[in-house]
Each structure stands twice: as C-alpha cells, then as structure tokens.
C-alpha cells in the first residue's frame, strides 16, 4: 500500500494517484465540499448585525444623560434588574457584556479572514485603491482599519464594563470619563465604531441583496445616504454625550469616586 502513496515536488502526498478501492456494488463519490465557508460567512454577517444593533441601542441608552442625570441613573438601574428583582444586580450587566465580548471576539476572528495577509496583499490592495478612486473600495479600507483599531479600543471598554458593572451612573461614568482619563479613548472609539458600524451595515445590505427593490442602483444610492446619515447622527450624538460627561466629570472632579444618589429613592430600590 505504501508504494501507492507518492509525493510530488512539494512533498505533498499524491493520494489522487491511488486507485479507488472498490466497495461491493457502491459507486465512489467525491467528498462533499465543506459547508463551513458558508456558515462562517453567515456568522460574520450575523455577529456584525447584532453588534451594530447593540451599538445603536447602547448609544441611545448612554445618551439619556442628555435628558437628565436621573434619566441615566434610571436606565442604568434598569439594566441591573432593579425593577424586576427589588434590588439591582450589576452582575446582570456583566453577563450582557460577556455576551457582547463573545460576539465581538467571534466577529473579529471571522472578519480577520478578509484582512490582507502579509505585505504583498497589503501592498496590492493599497495600490489598487489608490489608482482606482472607487468609493466602496476605499470605504472597505476604512472599515478594515477601524476594525483593527477596535480590537484594542473596544477591548479596554468592554473589560472595564465587565469587571466594574456597578460603576455605571451619572457621577460614576462622568468620573471615569474625566478623572479616570478615559475620554481620549472614548473619543477615538466613538469615531472608529460609528464609521465601522455604518459602513458595515451598508455592506451587509449590498452583500446579501437586502432592500434592493426594483432598481438596485437607486437603492444603493439611498443606502449610501443612510450610511452617511447613520455615521453622522451617531457621531454627533456620541460627541454631545461625551461632552456632557466631560462637563459633568470636571464639575465632579473634586468629589471623584462619590456615587450618585438620586434625589428621591425609586420605589423600594436600595442601591448597595
């Protein structure tokens, strides 16, 4: 049997050269192609979509500070289950963050398959992008770079939220932003994540042919407008929100570390 196994110039086993062993009366069939490329492709899109939806919801929740400190305090306690379990459980936030981390790592790992592997691919794409001047091609480059930046920036934020879920509140968050020197990270993270999410959602629609309508070309132009609007809206909302936290954090700097105490207790909820 070993004499049937030959190696080619690369040293790979030439198993194709082996005669097919004939089984009794059953025809030999070629093994099916792996289904994993399809599943991984769907998973990449699905994780990206869920993260984008989370991102939008997250931004709206965070921006409740623009309404009032009490509003943000109420939202924060809501996610700790204070209105369901009679007292807040910050571990619930950690659980949500753990799921987001799992989605984030999964999405990052799957998306990395599309990154240029090595200098030759990197250089080939750069030269192509620079001579082509094609908007969607250039946008992918932005998406790849913002995705790469998120590996680091989002990880810091997620770990922070995972380990200190109780420190989400008007003063707690403002202290983290200003006295904790997190605002430069949040500023960069805001731009990276909103650009990445906006372009990602647009590409998702193109990739799977969603919202094509009767005229795909017109739909694509509309999707591009939605993409710009998405990024512009959330970057603006994020900037205004971050400025509010910076302002609050500066005013609270002398009392950094002190927790927010609501003017009136919320039903029977007792913060511990």
């Amino acid at each position: 049997m070993s004499s049937l196994i030959k190696t080619n110039a690369s040293g790979e086993l030439g198993l194709q050269a082996m005669p097919h062993p004939q089984t009794h009366g059953t025809a030999q069939t070629k093994p099916r192609k792996s289904r994993w490329p399809a599943r991984l492709d769907v998973l990449q899109s699905a994780t990206g979509l869920i993260l984008a939806v989370f991102l939008m919801a997250h931004m709206f929740f965070v921006s409740t500070i623009l309404i009032s400190q009490q509003a943000f305090y109420t939202v924060a306690r809501f996610f700790e289950g204070a209105y369901f379990f009679a007292r807040p459980y910050p571990a619930l936030v950690s659980c949500v963050v753990a799921v987001v981390i799992a989605l984030f790592i999964g999405h990052a790992g799957l998306a990395m398959r599309k990154f240029p592997a090595g200098f030759r691919q990197f250089n080939a794409f750069c030269r192509h992008k620079n001579r082509f001047h094609h908007s969607d091609t250039s946008l992918w480059w932005i998406q790849a770079w913002t995705g790469f930046a998120l590996f680091f920036m989002a990880t810091i934020h997620l770990y922070d939220m995972l380990t200190q879920p109780a420190l989400i509140g008007p003063f707690e968050s403002a202290d983290r932003v200003w006295s904790g020197n997190m605002w430069p990270l949040y500023l960069a993270l805001l731009f990276a994540v909103e650009l990445h999410g906006g372009i990602g959602l647009y590409r998702l629609a193109i990739k799977w042919g969603w919202l094509e309508g009767s005229d795909p070309q017109r739909s694509r132009r509309r999707l591009a407008i939605v993409r710009y609007s998405f990024s512009a809206f959330f970057v603006t909302l994020g900037l205004v929100t971050l400025l509010t936290y910076i302002d609050l954090g500066r005013a609270h700097a002398d009392h950094a570390g002190e927790r927010y105490i609501p003017p009136q207790s919320i039903s029977s909820v007792d913060r511990r």
Partner: peptide, 21 residues
C-alpha cells in the same frame, strides 16, 4: 456549491462592487 461554495468563490467576495461599477 461544489464550484463556488468557498472563500475562492462567492464567500470570498467582499462586496466592494468595483466589478459592478
């Protein structure tokens, strides 16, 4: 699927739509 069901086939497309344009 046997012909295009992998990253060299349809799942390799990054939807840059340069081809279309």
């Amino acid at each position: 699927y046997e012909l295009i069901g992998d990253d060299d086939g349809v799942f390799g497309c990054m939807s840059l739509v340069g081809c279309h344009d």
